[in-house]
């Protein structure tokens, strides 16, 4: 079964269309790679911090108790 010139042209269009789709998909995948790398880095930092210190529990009021209140 031989292809006509028109069918060959359709195949070329299909190749271009699929290539364009893959280029778009590769762009998204690259973003995913970057984001997952960033996530992995952040979570490693968080785990390090957790290992080093306790949760930041406030042992004093965040506002000094003797702040003069506004006169009413």
């Amino acid at each position: 079964m031989m292809m006509t010139a028109q069918e060959k042209m359709y195949l070329l269009f299909l190749f271009l269309a699929y290539s364009a789709l893959f280029v778009v998909m590769f762009g998204f995948m690259f973003k995913m790679l970057q984001k997952t790398r960033q996530l992995a880095r952040d979570i490693a930092l968080l785990a390090d911090e957790e290992g080093k210190q306790d949760l930041p529990v406030a042992d004093a009021p965040s506002v000094a108790p003797h702040v003069r209140s506004r006169e009413l």
């Binding site: 079964m1 893959f22 280029v23 690259f30 790679l33």
Partner: peptide, 28 residues
């Protein structure tokens, strides 16, 4: 390394759609 994959994939598409011959019975 990821960017080496793009020409590989486009190359594979070219071989599949344009370069490879038709099958005698199945055609395209």
């Amino acid at each position: 390394w990821y960017w080496l994959l793009l020409p590989l994939m486009v190359g594979a598409l070219y071989l599949d759609f344009v370069w490879s011959p038709d099958d005698r019975i199945l055609g395209a």
